[in-house]
Each structure stands twice: as C-alpha cells, then as structure tokens.
Design a protein around this nucleic acid. Sequence first.
DNA 1: AAATATTTTTAGATCAGCCCAAAATTTTAA
DNA 2: TTAAAATTTTGGGCTGATCTAAAAATATTT
Lengths: 226, 226
Amino acid sequence: MLSQVEENYLKSIFKITEKEGKPASTNAIAGDLQTTAASVTDMLKRLSEKTLIHYEKYKGVQMSDKGLTIATQLVRRHRLWEVFLVEKLEFAWDEVHDLAEQLEHIHGNSLIDRLDAFLGNPRFDPHGDPIPDAQGRWTRRKQILLSALEPGEKGIVSGVENHSPEFLQYLDQLGLVLHTQITLRERFPYDQSVRIRTDDGRELSLSEKVAANLYVEEQSGTKERR
Amino acid sequence: MLSQVEENYLKSIFKITEKEGKPASTNAIAGDLQTTAASVTDMLKRLSEKTLIHYEKYKGVQMSDKGLTIATQLVRRHRLWEVFLVEKLEFAWDEVHDLAEQLEHIHGNSLIDRLDAFLGNPRFDPHGDPIPDAQGRWTRRKQILLSALEPGEKGIVSGVENHSPEFLQYLDQLGLVLHTQITLRERFPYDQSVRIRTDDGRELSLSEKVAANLYVEEQSGTKERR
DNA sequence: AAATATTTTTAGATCAGCCCAAAATTTTAA
DNA sequence: TTAAAATTTTGGGCTGATCTAAAAATATTT
Ligand SMILES: [Mn+2]
Ligand SMILES: [Mn+2]
Ligand SMILES: [Mn+2]
Ligand SMILES: [Mn+2]
C-alpha cells in the first residue's frame, strides 16, 4: 500500500503528462506539489524502484501501467467525493477540492464503489470533469473553450479550465452554472471579449480571460477506452 | 494542526482513562495502538510539550482540557462516519470501524456539522455508542449488561461491549439487532447462560459470554454535560 | 563552438515516528 | 525489608519525507 505522499506524486505526474503530452519534468512536479526539485528527485527514485513510473535521470518521468491504474483510481475517488460533498452535504463547488484531496486517500474494499452507487454513478464531477468508472474508463466529451466558439453558435456550459475558488465564485455571481445553455452573440476584436445570451434570456459580457477558462459542449459524448 | 498519529494517541489515552478511571499506563497505550512502550514514551513527551496531556514520568498520563476537546471531536467524527457508512452506503455494522478510523482524521471547517445534519443529527452510532454533539456534550443512557438483568425484566438491545466483527456477526445470526425488545425468561445457575424472548416471539438461549457483552436499556436517557 | 543560463541531481542535515536493547524506576513477592 | 519481577524510560539507530547548498548535466545564447 502506498503512502499519501506517494499517491500525491502519482496524481501529479499523471496530471502533468496528460496535459503536456510528454514526460513530466522535475520542476513541473515540484511546482505542482509546492515542494523542491531535490525532494522530487528523491521521490522519483522511490517510485521508480516500485515500478510505479518510468524514470530516467535528466529525462523526465512517465507513468507505468501500474502507476496509471493507481492514478486513475485516485482521480475517480477525488471526483466522486466532490460529488458527494456538493450533492449531499451542500457545499459550494469552490469549497470541495481541499476536502477531496484528503478523502481521496481513504482506502477500503468496496467503499468507492458503494459511494459511486449511492451517488447514482455520476459521470462528471461538480466542475464538469469526467469521473473514470471502476474499470478506469473515461467518458470523453466534445467540449471547446468558449473563446473558440463562433458568433451565432450555441453551447452548454460543461466545465472549467481554471478551478480556482475565485473564478468559480465569479461564475456563480454571473449565474453561469454548469448545464446553462448559451449563445455567443458577438466577439469584440479589440480585446477578444464576448457577449453571450443565456437560456434564461440574460445578456452577459465576458472578458477574454473568462471565455478562455470556460468549456462549452457541442454534442453529447461516447464511452471509449483510454 | 495535529498529525494522524498524534490524534490516534489522544483517542487511545481518552478511551483508556475513561474506561479505567485512572491515568493511562504506557503499556496500556502501547497495547491499544499495537506499538511498543518505547514509542509511546516518545510520543507522550511530544504531546505533553503541546499541553495536550498531563504526563509525569512513571506516573501515567491523563487528558488535558485541550486534549479532551480534541479527543471528543475525534469520537464524534468516528461515530458519525460510521452512521454514514451503515445508513447511506449500506455497510454492515461489523465492516465500518476500520474505514471510520481513517475518515475521522479528515479535517475541514463545516464538514462534520454538515455530515451530522445530513444524517439527521443521530445520537447513537451503529453499535449503540453515543455521539457527542458539536459542543462535546454526550447523551447518557441507563443501560446495563444483559447479564445483570433479572428474570422477568424487559429491556431493549442498545449496545455492545465487545465490538469485534465476530461478535457482531454472531448477533446478526441470532437476529439480535439494535432496538430489539427482549424479556429475560430464565438464568441457569450452572453456567449463567440465559433464555430470552424477543419481541417477535422467538426464544433464544444465550451464553454468559454473549450476555456479558450485550447492553440493554431500561429507560430513555437525558442530556448532561460531561 | 564556446560561454552562459537553466534544470536536475547529489551531498549532507533535519524531523517525526518507530524500533531494540539496556538502564532506571516502581511494584510485587519472599 | 530485601530480592525478584514487571514496567517505564533512555540511548542509539532506522526509514520516509523534507530542505539547502553545491555539483553535474542539459539547454540556450552568443
Ligand atoms: Mn478537485
Ligand atoms: Mn473537480
Ligand atoms: Mn468504531
Ligand atoms: Mn462504533
């Protein structure tokens, strides 16, 4: 069984390699985990020893099959707990991440599968991120950034690129919750800000910064193996 | 903020001093936490340094006010999570202890109070043990061991002295779940075994060992400060 | 291609937790 | 009231996780 710290490293390496599409650098991991490069090198040796990662000195690190399975389970746990906290305990979507960071490390035989069932087998977490199923399969969606939508096109708010409480609270204030249907009315070339209309008829102006951190879905997704 | 290990020590010291009614010995703590006396002495120094306990070399250890508050919150968390696991995730009452041992260490502002509300502010956990409220107040009940009941007297199964999965599963098999009303029919002097009648009309024979590990309630309890 | 800057690793320490073996203290028995 | 037994503490050492400072390797400029 792995320590919480080891699990956090695996999750971080997974996240970085997924996003970057190449081996994770020592510095990137250190930045993500708020620690030093020296500590990271130390841990990479240990994880490599346990065949949880593929690591070559100075060349960065990738997930092994074993590590990938564990990291996927961690993401599953994290997101299911987030659903629980929002749906059942009525936390706001900007309050649940830190608690889920702790809860994801709880180990137990059928715990997560029971939680999954209790929550009704949700496919997405409160931030619109997909929840891998018990076999580690992901639900993929065709979603694009609002900043990539063309005037006249419609979309449904389906996720966020930035997960910071500040951004999430701002979206709350704007009334731009998940599943809101929107139409892009106009994009102003001067600053790339946009004007949208929501399904309840309100017109909103959004900065380029907001538009570049909000995902909209164009059509429904399908299940596929990762 | 305390480490999980420190929290476990506080809970153990609390449990032992409550049961024994006197300072907890190094050996008792070591036995409870499945560690060595040397490790315990080590930790007692650290906890004493943080004024979480009153510790005098060779004289045993007692809770300080600060430690007592923390230990009480830990018991509250442990038991509320047990209720969640049984009531919501449908675990059996003999399966939840180890998970609750982990969950009780999750820290978060309003987490436990929200969980408490979500569960309907339960006063007792799945094993009949009282759950302290947010202010650390306990619900006390007049419950006695079944082995102390006299022939002809009635009682309601309200708790267990032994929490082992083996005993709990055996009670399941006997159909002696919490809140079952029973009448003591006869006690056999030869081995102190008893014959009881349950509220659904069944007659059961119970060994002295079972009777000495099962609590029955005689009347409803009142709230008081500890 | 050489010089410079950046990234990564190593060396050496610290700290919390844990252990064993030996010494000190307290308790029990003779 | 001594001697023996049991308990507790101390001393020394180990591991996992962390850090700083210095060395090594890689990447970027000139
Ligand atoms: Mn999160
Ligand atoms: Mn999320
Ligand atoms: Mn328990
Ligand atoms: Mn319990």
